[in-house]
Design a binder for these strands. Structure first.
Lengths: 147, 147
DNA sequence: CTAAATAGACAGGCGAGTTGACTACATGGT
DNA sequence: ACCATGTAGTCAACTCGCCTGTCTATTTAG
């Protein structure tokens, strides 16, 4: 049935938009009003393991110059620190501070609330099918800003 | 199970990213290399019904000045025309040209292909559950750029 | 020990969006 | 009929996020 894929596609975009808005709003309400969506993607990467500026740039899909500016912004506001890389004296690793980890937790909590709000009118079976389907369809590639 | 919502959330973002990339690529391959994602959102709105610049601005969530520039860009490239609003001599309605409609169809076809590519490894039951769940969760609000 | 590659930062530019100011037309109250 | 206020659309100047180009310090390969 043609048109069905289109409503599926627009649904994904609507959910993505709601999710980003929900995270942004929840994070701001939790006392972190100065972080933007792109910072969230950086936090997700750095919460897995520290990274150099160049590695983070690769992950985000932007230049290392832009990444350098973003990192400085987050260091200035206490979300990140730079620590010397023990294996390379040119490099400095970007590491989340306590504040950075708190912010990441707030973002995940807001995302969780938003996902639940989607599921308001769904049966338990629909919820499980939706989550499984989404995860199966999306795979596990890197997570970066949409465009 | 905590963490489940988070993987659901990131799955939505990944799918959204893939969808936008797929549409962009498909539309460019179909001979429309000069349209950006925001233009697609404008096309979707205008394919429902003509709109004034101010109405389109409201829909896209940006200022009417920015919308005016986008509209001029699309008029210059033959995707839109401006026609006088019969009910208000200040206003001019933005209308899709044949080229604009062709581009919209190409975008929908590309979106369709991308949705199918997600469903590659899903059973028919999973596909139906995923589509139904997405559409039910997303509702039918306005469609606008994610951020 | 030198040559090429890489990490990171500085400078300047571009593009998409913003706020502010303005003209033309519309609309409601007197 | 008139004037005050509001709305459609555009021009100008600015901001901001990201880009390209260039540079130094350090690493790594030959």
């Amino acid at each position: 049935m043609p048109g069905d894929e289109w409503s599926t596609a627009t649904a994904v975009l609507r959910l993505g938009s709601k999710l980003v808005d929900g995270i942004q709003q929840g994070v701001a309400a939790a006392g972190f009003p100065d972080v933007r969506p792109v910072h969230g993607f950086a936090f997700v990467r750095l919460s897995e393991a520290p990274a150099t500026t160049a590695q983070l740039a690769q992950h985000l899909g932007i230049t290392k110059q832009a990444t350098s500016e973003i990192a400085q912004y987050l260091v200035d506001r206490g979300y990140l620190t730079r620590v010397p890389d023990p294996t390379d004296r040119r490099a400095r690793l970007l590491v989340l501070t306590d504040r950075g980890r708190s912010c990441t937790r707030a973002a995940q909590a807001a995302a969780s609330r938003t996902v639940h709000s989607w599921e308001q009118d769904l049966t338990d079976g629909q919820k499980a099918a939706l989550r499984d389907g989404l995860v199966a369809a999306a795979g596990s590639g890197r997570l970066r800003p949409a465009w």
